[in-house]
Each structure stands twice: as structure tokens, then as C-alpha cells.
Nucleic acid binder design. Structure first.
Length: 420
RNA sequence: GUGGGAAUAGCUCAGUUGGAUUAGAGCGCAGGAUUGUGGCUCCUGAGGCCGCGGGUUCGAAUCCCGUUUCUCACCCCA
């Protein structure tokens, strides 16, 4: 019997749940303010959704997908990312008929990779997709939302990177120019980059090998080869971001791993993150994707945030996930078994008043029980022994300052609110 | 998919060049220090197939091989 969870997966409980809830609730609050509504898509799709959506040349499609035949022989794939499924749903339900449409999701993703800290085979992302707006206004609003999420969580020193990768009109010619520039030096590239040169040349910009870096350094950047439409669009985006007072940097060699991106792309990274997995969130515009799926032309934009990675960084930076002061709660201590019924009655009373409470399920020494209550996060204890059972008055003790009060709960049910 | 490091109590870790007899510590947990009152202190106790499987050896937590998981660097991404 194997008793550990599979490689790259993890049980989430205890502290991690607090962080997770805090992140998701904070984001949902903002999604609501920005008028996004939630979509939940299936955990798996027809494999073709990702093959066509993400791009055959990407590592995700080439080697990282959990693909399996079902019992009827259909090829299915656990979702490795969130955009392609949402796009599929937009087309399937003709949601584009009422554009613009703003959707958000909180879902688990699956990629078959070598796990590292902040990089799991099953991981959680939250993200948005805004479909049907061509205006740079939506680019700015989406980037703004991404920045706000991390601000809301309490992050200070994150870096927002922005770039444009152009469109179908200007990117192919630029790639030709770029390849021509590189061509004489192809042999000096690292083996990976020689491969990239043929499959996805812009990825060479991501290479960390120094020799490749120097070759790239003075190469033409797409930024100066954008068509007039893309140039204008990008200038508008950056200017809108400035008017929102969002700090960002244009990173001319920023590229991203999916084939579907056009025009604006962006990424939020942490230089504090000890691991190399420093990208906490990222996204971009995908103006042609819905069309490629067989839908009408619907320009769209979205981003995704890595929840697990965000938790790692919050812990590392000691960012608290406690939203409010802890509310009052009561641990009910029974001194004799014969008072169990009375204890349950009191529990019921507390719960009707919306007070979180629990009871000792074993009769133990009072000192041990108070100690236990304190260690387990209770703010108050209520003691039920012979005196309380006969008088009907229960002793409620506030743990932080040892203060005890008498609660005549049957006579004055509201008194509990004054005592706590 | 490539290359390094690691795995001993619930947690953090000791464990000598392979050796004696019950594999240790701190924290945590449980019980106690005279009767129904917690933060300190003291005493006691429970809890380990030394990741799993094989091998070398008179003898393995320790050495070798395999395997699983974690971790780090690549690849790539959130």
C-alpha cells in the first residue's frame, strides 16, 4: 500500500488553507469590483483544445500534458492552463454574442514537470479572461487588476513587466529580420537555442546562457518593428498605466510560453523569491485565439496567478494572512460526565448566537482543559460543574486576562454578547 | 527529459573510520507535583520496519545497487 500522495501533488491543510483562503477571497473581492463573473470549466478537455490552443511548439504540449484515452478511446487531457478551456466555453455557449464578457476562474492545473519549490504537477491558478474588447483600455484595466491583487495581499516590492509581441502582421516579418541577424552566429548558440532558432526563435531571449545573451544583446527587438497599429496600441496601454499610477517597466525582450499571445504581454515577478520560479502571475492579449478555435474574431486578454507560488512567497516574506482580529469563541469544559446533556444545551445556545464553540469530549482535569483551550486558539472557556448545573449560572473565563464572569444564560440570553 | 544533494520520533535535527546492551536530543504530545482554574518550573511516560527493496559483511541507520519521494540547478512555466 502506497501511503504518500503522487509526485508533484500535495495535501493542503492547516496554515496553507488560511493563506489560500486569504488569497482567493481577496482576489474574488476585486473580481467583483471589476465586474467579473466566475466560470468553472471541467478538469479535463478534449486533447485537441490544448493542442490547437496553446501551440504545438510549446513545451507544455510537447511534453507536459497529462493525456489519456477514456474508455471509449477519446483522447482527453487534464487542463495545463486556464485560457484554452475558457475560450472553448465562450465558443460553445456563444458567450461572444454579448461581449464584452469578463470571466474569472480559480482552478487546479496539471503539468507533467520535474517538481520544484513553487512548481507542482497539480497546482492552483486564479485568473481572468476579458473577451471582446479591442481598446487598450481593457489591457490597462486587466494589468491594473493584476497589480491590485498583489497589493491587496500586502506585497510591496513586486515588479510588473510589460511588452508587446506584435500581431500577425508585424511579428512574422520581425522574426525574419531577427533570424537573419542571428543566422551568421547560429553555431555559437547553445544547443537549446539552436533548436529554438528553428521552432520558436523569440524564446532565445529567455536563455540564461551567457554566450547567447551577448549574441542577443544588440539584436533587433520587436519593440522597434511593431506595425503602426501595434505601436499605437502599446503606447496607449503604457500611457493609461501611467495615469493609473501603476509602476511598471517595459521589458523589450519579454516573451511568453504560449503561441496565442498577440500585442500586450505582461508578467509580475518577485526578486525576493529565493527560487528561480519568480513569476507570480502573467498574461497577455490573444486577439486571434477565439477565431482559431472556429469562433468569430473576438479580441481578448487575460492573466493567471499561481496560488501555490504566492503562498510560498508570502511565507518567505512573513506576510500575514490574518484578515481581521480573531473573533471570540468558547471552549466548554465539562467536569463530570453527568453534565453532558446540560453542556450540549449550552452549546446549542452558543451556536444559535453565532459563536464558534466546542466541548470537551473527555472528562479531564480542569487545568489540563484550560491549557488545551488556550493552545488551540480559544479566547474563552465556560466551565460546567456541579455549581453551574444547580444554579444555572455558568462561569465564562476570558483567557487573555484571566477575567471571569457569571453568565445567567437562561434568565438573560443576551448577556453573552456583553461578556464576550 | 538532463545533472547534483537529501530521506532517522508529530516537527527540527544528532548519531564518530561499519560494532557492543533498550537508536538519542530539543520542541510538541500525554500523565503527575493533595480536592474546580491556563502562560513559568520540576518529575514521569508514550511515540521509530533509520523512506522502500535487494546486496556486501560475523555484524549495516552507517558501505554498494535499485526504487520512491523531497530539494536544487537546467528545460519550461504560474
Amino acid at each position: 500500500m502506497v501511503i504518500n500522495c503522487p509526485r508533484g501533488t500535495a495535501d493542503i491543510f492547516g496554515d496553507d488553507i488560511s493563506y489560500r483562503d486569504f488569497i482567493i477571497e481577496s482576489a474574488k473581492k476585486l473580481f467583483k469590483l471589476f465586474n467579473y463573473s466566475e466560470i468553472i470549466t471541467p478538469a479535463f478537455e478534449h486533447t485537441e483544445v490544448f493542442n490547437r490552443g496553446i501551440g504545438q511548439s510549446t513545451d507544455i504540449v510537447k511534453k507536459e500534458m497529462y493525456t489519456f484515452p477514456d474508455k471509449k478511446g477519446r483522447s482527453l487531457t487534464l487542463r495545463p492552463e486556464g485560457t484554452a478551456p475558457v475560450v472553448r466555453a465562450i465558443i460553445e455557449h456563444k458567450l461572444y454574442s454579448k461581449v464584452p464578457i469578463k470571466l474569472f476562474y480559480v482552478e487546479n492545473m496539471f503539468r507533467y514537470e520535474r517538481p520544484q519549490k513553487g512548481r507542482m504537477r497539480e497546482f492552483w491558478q486564479l485568473g481572468v479572461e476579458a473577451a471582446g474588447v479591442n481598446s487598450p483600455l481593457i489591457d490597462a484595466e486587466v494589468i491594473w487588476l493584476l497589480a491590485l491583487i498583489f497589493e491587496e495581499l500586502g506585497f510591496k516590492n513586486l515588479k510588473l513587466l510589460v511588452n508587446s509581441v506584435g500581431c500577425d502582421d508585424c511579428r512574422p516579418p520581425y522574426i525574419n529580420v531577427f533570424k537573419k541577424y542571428i543566422e551568421p552566429q547560429v553555431e555559437s548558440l547553445c544547443p537549446d537555442c539552436r533548436e529554438r532558432y528553428n521552432t520558436n526563435p523569440l524564446r532565445i531571449f529567455d536563455c540564461k546562457v551567457r554566450s547567447c545573451g551577448t549574441i542577443i544583446e544588440d539584436s533587433p527587438k520587436i519593440y522597434s518593428h511593431l506595425c503602426s497599429g501595434c505601436t499605437q496600441h502599446f503606447k496607449a496601454v503604457t500611457s493609461l498605466l501611467k495615469s493609473l499610477n501603476i509602476s511598471f517597466a517595459v521589458k523589450e525582450d519579454l516573451v511568453r510560453g504560449f503561441d496565442y499571445y498577440t500585442r500586450t504581454i505582461f508578467e509580475i515577478i518577485s526578486e525576493d523569491l529565493e527560487s528561480v520560479q519568480n513569476a507570480l502571475g502573467g498574461g497577455g492579449r490573444y486577439d486571434r485565439l477565439i477565431e482559431q478555435f472556429g469562433g468569430p474574431p473576438v479580441p481578448s486578454i487575460g492573466f493567471a496567478v499561481g496560488i501555490d507560488r504566492t503562498i510560498v512567497l508570502m511565507k518567505q516574506l512573513n506576510i500575514s494572512c490574518m484578515q481581521n482580529e480573531q473573533e471570540n469563541n468558547v471552549f466548554v469544559i465539562l467536569l463530570e460526565q453527568e453534565f453532558e446533556g446540560y453542556g450540549l444545551e449550552f452549546l446549542s445556545y452558543l451556536r444559535k448566537h453565532g459563536i464558534r464553540c466546542d466541548i470537551s469530549f473527555e472528562i479531564k482535569k480542569i487545568a489540563a482543559q484550560i491549557k488545551w483551550a488556550e493552545k488551540n486558539g480559544f479566547t474563552h472557556t465556560a466551565i460546567i460543574g456541579g455549581d453551574e448545573a444547580s444554579s444555572g449560572i455558568i462561569t465564562v473565563k476570558r483567557l487573555k486576562d484571566f477575567k471571569q464572569s457569571q453568565l445567567n444564560w437562561k434568565k438573560d440570553p443576551q448577556e453573552i454578547n456583553d461578556i464576550l
